[in-house]
């Protein structure tokens, strides 16, 4: 399973990548919305783990944009928001996020969500 991590805090992006790797999945990092737009059709991620507070473009808008790609029709988008943005659950659902996690993301939670998605994919074939 391929996970695209979109996060402008480089250290956070890298460590999240390492965690995803430890959980047994492949990952790629995008530090800017533009980079993510380019990585989407190229990397064809199964999961996009996306920070909401990105520079230049909000994660909501980026999610809407990326979901326009037909190649990403089955990709699961997961929103990650900071401590000050917890109330944004409804908004993230409207933008097309399947899951909404609050930062800093707990390893167990992330593991549960990613494993769930992987099982779904297996079941779907």
């Amino acid at each position: 399973m391929k996970v695209l991590i979109v996060e402008d805090n480089e250290a956070l992006a890298q460590t999240t990548g390492w965690i995803v790797e430890m959980l047994g999945y492949d990952y790629r990092l995008s530090l800017t919305p533009r980079d993510a737009m380019a990585a989407g059709p190229d990397y064809l991620p199964d999961v996009v783990l996306m920070d909401i507070g990105l520079p230049g473009m909000s994660g909501y808008d980026l999610c809407r944009e990326m979901r326009q790609y037909p190649a990403l029709a089955r990709t699961v988008f997961i929103a990650q928001t900071g401590w000050d943005e917890r109330e944004h659950g409804a908004q993230s659902e409207a933008a097309g996020f399947r899951h909404h996690l609050t930062k800093p993301v707990d390893l167990k939670t992330l593991e549960g969500v990613l494993n769930g998605i992987a099982e779904d994919m297996l079941a779907r074939g």
């Binding site: 805090n9 890298q14 460590t15 999240t16 430890m22 900071g82 000050d84 390893l107």
Partner: peptide
């Protein structure tokens, strides 16, 4: 709040990684 969280979040991630795999291949980087 934002600026304090920025370094704290990866530190927390780092701790989780080290707890799971104290001597793994990323430990030094972490």
């Amino acid at each position: 709040a934002h600026e304090l969280r920025n370094p704290l979040a990866p530190i927390r991630n780092g701790l989780q990684i080290l707890r799971l795999s104290p001597d793994g291949p990323m430990a030094g980087n972490v």
